[in-house]
């Protein structure tokens, strides 16, 4: 399939450009990268150790990059001398909470956005639609931090169910489903509400167009029930644009995760990234951004493949190459 190879090529180009830019940025942001890595005012011995592990660090950027890339693809994800932890171990520890949070945020976002978007489009300009419209504009304009604060005062402090600020910690669902829920619900909701607002608007707009198309009129004229018209005929063709907007929000999701992890916990990748930036822990910054880029690009790749699953015309066009 030429199509897939083309996409993979794009993937690599994006990956290389972004990771290179990040590398340049970290080097510019630091007067003496090796010293910073070693933890600031530290012994020459410590610095020598860093240079011994990463001898390329005092070479030119163009020489550094291929060596870093080779390290990255062979699984050497850097080392944090201040934390005495390898990049790989850090991911093993910090990636699961962030992944769970992102996953639940998307689930919550969709669980709210789909019914709200569909019903708004169905009863267009009705009371529900207008209410949903105001509410979602409110949420869209609220940064995740504000939503988090609101949730804190409206939900967390009024019930004793959920851990409070900074209190959420990582519990895997297979260890304790209830514990997982307690720790993840509020942070995921803080992220998911914003997503739901964006997605429901997207879906409503697209459904409005779909509902005006001839084939919907034809479905109606066949005597298909309104529910079936909405869910089987209209939603299906609006799903394409919904998938697109989900993919578009993946990067926003990462930004939100940074804030929410710091506010409520559980401490994941986002939290770790902020800390690494504060510490000028440049190898870890590079590793995390590289993984995030892979994540975002992968999400887009999946979306692209989903297009073909949903729409036979796209399948057909791609077969032609």
């Amino acid at each position: 399939m030429r199509y897939v190879s083309q996409r993979l090529l794009q993937f690599f180009v994006v990956f290389i450009v972004v990771t290179f830019i990040v590398m340049v940025a970290t080097r510019i942001g630091s007067a003496d990268p090796v010293r910073d890595l070693a933890g600031g005012a530290v012994s020459d011995q410590q610095i020598a150790r860093v240079l011994n592990d990463y001898p390329y660090l005092d070479q030119s950027l163009f020489l550094q990059y291929p060596q870093w890339l080779l390290d990255f693809v062979t699984g050497n994800l850097g080392y944090s001398y201040t934390q005495s932890q390898s990049g790989l171990a850090m991911f093993q520890q910090r990636l699961p909470p962030t992944l769970f949070m992102g996953f639940w945020a998307i689930v919550i976002g969709l669980a709210i956005a789909v019914p709200v978007g569909v019903y708004s489009a169905y009863k267009r300009d009705g009371a529900f639609d207008r209410g949903a419209s105001y509410t979602s504009f409110a949420f869209i304009s609220m940064p995740p931090l504000v939503i988090a604060v609101a949730l804190l005062f409206l939900v967390v402090t009024r019930t004793s169910l959920f851990p409070t600020v900074g209190g959420s910690s990582y519990i895997a669902p297979w260890d304790s489903p209830w514990g997982h829920f307690r720790n993840f619900f509020i942070p995921s909701l803080a992220l998911g509400l914003g997503l739901a607002a964006v997605w429901s608007r997207f879906l409503r707009a697209d459904m409005n167009l779909t509902l005006q198309s001839d084939f919907i009129m034809l479905a109606k004229a066949k005597g298909v029930s309104p529910a079936r018209v909405l869910w089987r005929h209209a939603l299906r063709s609006s799903v394409l644009s919904l998938i697109t907007s989900v993919a578009l929000q993946v990067s926003a999701l990462i930004g939100g995760a940074v804030v929410v992890e710091q506010f409520f916990g559980p401490r994941g990748i986002g939290d770790r990234l902020v800390f690494a930036i504060q510490q000028n822990d440049i190898l870890i910054i590079q590793a995390i951004t590289a993984v995030l880029v892979v994540g975002v690009v992968l999400a887009n790749l999946i979306v692209d493949l989903l297009y073909a699953v949903v729409d036979p015309r796209i399948r057909h066009a791609r077969k032609l190459g």
């Binding site: 198309s213 001839d214 084939f215 009129m217 034809l218 479905a219 109606k220 004229a221 066949k222 005597g223 298909v224 029930s225 089987r232 005929h233 299906r236 063709s237 949903v310 729409d311 036979p312 015309r313």
Partner: peptide, 24 residues
């Protein structure tokens, strides 16, 4: 009307390109 649509009254639209559900 649903019991009339399709059963008693049916319609053919102008544009056969856009009137069938492209995903079904």
């Amino acid at each position: 009307m649903r019991h009339i649509w399709g059963r008693e009254m049916a319609m053919i639209f102008q544009d056969p390109m856009s009137s069938l559900n492209p995903l079904m």
